[in-house]
Structure formats: C-alpha cells, structure tokens
Design a protein around this nucleic acid. Structure first.
Lengths: 108, 108
DNA sequence: TTTCTTTATCGTAATATTGCAATAAGACAA
DNA sequence: TTGTCTTATTGCAATATTACGATAAAGAAA
C-alpha cells in the first residue's frame, strides 16, 4: 500500500520515526553535516556542496525543514538554513534510552 | 527515479543514512523499544505486540536485521530477535558529533 | 506418519520517494 | 523597466516502500 499506518502507534514512536526517516538519506546526512560544520550560514552553498541537481537539493532541504531538523530564514535574496537545536535535542532525548539499553543487551 | 545515488556520498554518510532509515518507521521503532525493554528474548511475541499483520512485521524485522540493528538466532521452532549492541554503539558514535554541534548552534 | 506452530516468502496493489529538466517566483542591480 | 541571481515548484519517469492474504518451509508435538 505504501501508506504507513501511523494511527496504530504512539505519538512518540511516530515522532522518532519521522526524525529518523528525515535523516535516512545520505544527501540529507551530508546537508546536516555541512550545516553543523560551517561557521557561517552561507546557505545557497549547499547546492554547490551536495552532488545533486539544485531541484533535488531543494527537495531534501524541504524534507529536513518539514521534519524540523533545520529551519530556514530569508536573508534578502538568499535563504539561510540552519540546524534547529531544539529539535536535535528532542531527537537526542528520544534516542538516548535506546542507546542506553543497547549498551547492556539483555539476551543472546 | 526512486534510486538513491549512494555513489556520490561517503561510506559514513551512507551508513548513517541506512541506520536512520531503518529506524524511520513507527513499527520498527516499536519493535526496537519492545526488544530493548523485554527481559526475555521472547521473539515471536513481537507479532502480537505490533498492530500489523504477521507478514508485515516479518518484513520490518528483515529490514532491521539487514541494517544490522537487530540479530536473529534460531531457537528450535522459534527465532530470537535481539538488539545488536555493536551496531547501536556505532549508530550512537556517528550521531554524537551531530548532537554535540546542534547543542551550540553557530548561526541564526 | 499427520498435524500444529512459527516464521519467511511470494504476489499484488496502493502509495511514497528519488531525481532532474523546465519553469516560476522573488529580490536585487543596472 | 530589463536582466540576473537565488530558491521553489511543477511535471514526469523510475524505483522503493508499505501492507496484507496466501502460501511455503521447517521444527515440534501428537
């Protein structure tokens, strides 16, 4: 069907899945890494850095923005995309207990 | 095209994306949470816990296994699915620098 | 043996994702 | 105004994902 049955799961499960899914493409990982490592918010440069067409990069940026992992603000002629610290904190908080438990496996 | 251009990205970027993608579905989040929280490795119970058909759950388990987030071992008539601690450690290690940098945003 | 239980796989349908060229939309410059 | 620069959107094709019923495969139990 191609349609995820979100109704069957908790809000938290859906939120975590949504964030993970947004990061689930190498181009979007590359975009996040670039934004995390660049000092300035020189955003149009993303297209130059990511080896995909401008339209495709714009689409990936849209998905990251919709998931909340980045935010965009208009700077005159340009748009400044930045890491959304709050959402990453939330992401981290949701993953932490899983990382914690995976550290001490309880079987096998 | 529906085909991700993995060649254009680094191995690490592809690996992180692969792990994130595997977690990018609420059913798979629910499976991981169940495995992390259940003391015993009572694995066939996953199907009872996840509100999807058996065939669908099996498919999600396969994806988690292919990503390496869980492992399955045959126990007579049953299969025991467990968290793969090593892979979660890797996942955590790859995400940590991103979490770290997102904590101190450098612009906007 | 037969039957039951458990899990995987097949086949199918519906929807989603990925990627790009072309185009549009908006702000600035001349 | 016109032209240029930057980013978004549209339209399309190819592939992937999600979901489920039906079936298969393999061990357990009778």
């Amino acid at each position: 069907m191609g349609l995820t049955k979100t109704d069957n799961f908790t809000t938290t499960q859906n939120e975590l899945a949504s964030l993970a899914k947004a990061l689930g493409h190498p181009a979007r990982v590359a975009i996040i890494e670039y934004l995390a490592n660049s000092n300035s918010c020189v955003c149009g440069d993303i297209v130059d850095v990511i080896p995909l067409a401008q339209a495709t990069v714009s689409q990936h940026l849209k998905e990251l923005k919709q998931a909340g992992l980045i935010q965009g603000s208009i700077e005159g002629n340009t748009i400044c995309y930045c890491i959304n610290g709050e959402m990453w904190k939330k992401f981290s908080t949701m993953l932490e207990p899983l990382f914690e438990k995976a550290r001490s496996p309880n079987c096998c």
